[in-house]
């Protein structure tokens, strides 16, 4: 079932630019410029792009915050802006830098207020809250006013707040921004559980590509308001020529590096004891098997392609 259905989505902003000493000209800039997107129920989609690419603008149009300039948008079968309040019950949103919680009240009270705001039956509320309390270890700080929480604790609170009404879709805008390593791990672990449970469709924007590697099978890259990639991480690597590498350490140098079909030699160390292959079509297993036949291997390591590299290249392109 398609939960998010977007076709030809556009958002134009008018900006005033200085033209001469006192004159200002209005110029139209497309922040989102014809985005197509279909997300199936239960997917966890990574939505990435450089600053100003239109990630947040897209998310805001999907959640009913912003009115699209053109295009077709349906989330849970609803048109977001006209059906904003009805849609709000069926989605959850976490803005990494904007709190949904009551700043001066204990976290617990925010949850209770949200139960009323979303009209969640008390029993459902209790069950879900119990679930998240355990998963996110909320009890340690649930009685503190939100203003006293650390950023990581607050984010755990925000995630719970966004999920307590059992949304079909969860939108996460930079959920790990500014968090320390431990909190990041906790948030990612939680999201991985959420993905594996498969009840919630998740759209995640992030700057931290480790989030994507850990969590998202599908990745949409947006740049200048347009989708430049939509597919798996592997497809992205294939498309942009990033390859896995196999590095082998030998007991004795080979006379000539073994040439293997489907792999190219990238480098050989000065003493000839370490050879680095880039995998084109061969598998690591096949390569190692072939090598083992002609030389004695001391050590083997497989190096995954670096997503940061790929994405940086993609943004520059």
């Amino acid at each position: 079932m398609t939960v998010i259905d977007v076709r030809g989505l556009r958002k134009d902003f008018t900006v005033r630019v200085k033209a001469g000493r006192f004159r200002r000209e209005a110029r139209t800039v497309a922040a989102v410029d014809g985005v197509d997107l279909a997300v199936e129920a239960g997917e966890m989609l990574g939505y990435i792009g450089p600053n100003g690419a239109g990630k947040s603008t897209t998310l805001k149009m999907l959640t009913g915050v912003l009115y699209p300039s053109a295009g077709h948008v349906r989330v849970c079968g609803l048109e977001p802006v006209p059906r904003r309040t009805r849609l709000a019950r069926r989605i959850g949103v976490v803005f990494g830098q904007r709190s949904q919680l009551w700043w001066d009240l204990p976290l617990r009270e925010s949850f209770e207020l949200l139960r009323h705001v979303y009209r969640v039956p008390a029993t459902d509320h209790r069950t879900r809250l119990k679930w998240y309390r355990d998963l996110l270890d909320l009890d340690a700080f649930a009685d503190l006013p939100v203003r006293q929480l650390s950023l990581g604790q607050r984010m755990r609170g925000e995630l719970t707040a966004a999920l307590l009404h059992g949304p079909e879709v969860l939108f996460l805008d930079e959920p790990t921004i500014g968090l320390d390593v431990v909190s990041k791990q906790a948030v990612r672990g939680f999201l991985a559980d959420l993905r594996d449970a498969g009840d919630t469709t998740v759209v995640l924007t992030t700057h931290d590509l480790a989030d994507i590697e850990r969590l998202c099978r599908r990745l949409v890259v947006i740049d200048h308001g347009r989708v430049v990639h939509d597919g798996t991480l592997e497809r992205l690597h294939e498309r942009y020529g990033s390859r896995r590498r196999v590095v082998v350490d030998l007991d004795e140098p080979l006379a000539t590096p073994v040439d293997l079909p489907g792999a190219t030699v990238e480098s050989v160390s000065a003493d000839g004891l370490r050879i680095s292959y880039a995998l084109d079509s061969a598998t690591a297993g096949a390569l190692v098997a072939r090598l083992a036949a002609v030389a004695s291997l001391r050590d083997i390591s497989v190096v995954e392609p670096d997503i940061e590299d790929v994405v940086a290249r993609l943004y520059r392109a």
């Binding site: 009913g64 309040t85 009805r86 709000a88 989605i91 803005f95 709190s99 705001v117």
Partner: peptide, 13 residues
């Protein structure tokens, strides 16, 4: 500051 976003994603006017 864009804080209105958080208001608009709730199921209330």
């Amino acid at each position: 500051t864009g804080l209105l976003d958080a208001v608009l994603v709730r199921p209330l006017g």
